Simulated assay, not measured.
Amino acid sequence: MKIQGKLFMWLSVFLLITAVVYGVWSKEAVGTTALFMAFGLAIMIGFYLGFTAQRVDAGAQDDKEADVADGSGELGFFSPHSWQPLGLGLGWALGFLGIAVGWWLLYFAVPLILISVLGWVFEYYRGENRTQ
């Protein structure tokens, strides 16, 4: 994770320089704001990855002498059959459509989002997937 953190920190430096130069030359507020926000996002991700890299073991990507096989193995648990992200995506799409078309669509989007989030959080606490 160290290399990813460094990459995002260098990206944030590049975005900051680009935002300043773009803002001075173009005097356009929207693009300048977007570049400064991209700078903020890059520095947050870089800080998080650098902060997390200190607390976990070094991965294969941090070793310059590592082979591809060194990075194999289990990376974590990912739910193979969850339908909740689909409902969540549809709910957010309907919500953003409600902002563009009419606020009344949010009456349908908000319950769909809440049901999908709760279903995703508590997916393994009920039914056949229940853990002991």
Rank of each mutant, 00 (worst) to 15 (best):
T33W: 15
E123I: 09
L105H: 02
F51V: 15
W103I: 11
A93Q: 00
A100Y: 15
T18G: 13
T52G: 14
G73M: 01
A53E: 06
E65L: 07
L75I: 14
L106W: 02
G73S: 02
S26R: 05
I113Q: 06
I43M: 08
S72V: 12
E123D: 05
M44F: 15
L15F: 13
P111K: 03
F108T: 03
D57G: 13
V121K: 14
A53P: 02
V24N: 13
I115G: 11
G23I: 00
G73V: 00
A53R: 06
W25A: 14
K27G: 13
K6D: 08
F78K: 14
P111W: 01
A58V: 12
S12C: 06
A66V: 00
F78T: 15
G46D: 05
L7K: 07
H81D: 12
A69Q: 08
A53W: 07
G46H: 00
Y125D: 15
G87Q: 05
V24M: 13
G59Q: 04
A34V: 08
G59R: 03
L94I: 01
F14K: 05
G87F: 07
A69P: 03
I45V: 11
V56M: 10
D63M: 15
L94C: 00
G50D: 12
M9N: 13
G23K: 01
M44C: 14
W92F: 09
E28N: 09
A66S: 01
Q61E: 15
G50V: 08
L41N: 09
L105M: 05
A109M: 04
L118I: 09
V13D: 01
Q61K: 10
S82I: 01
T32M: 04
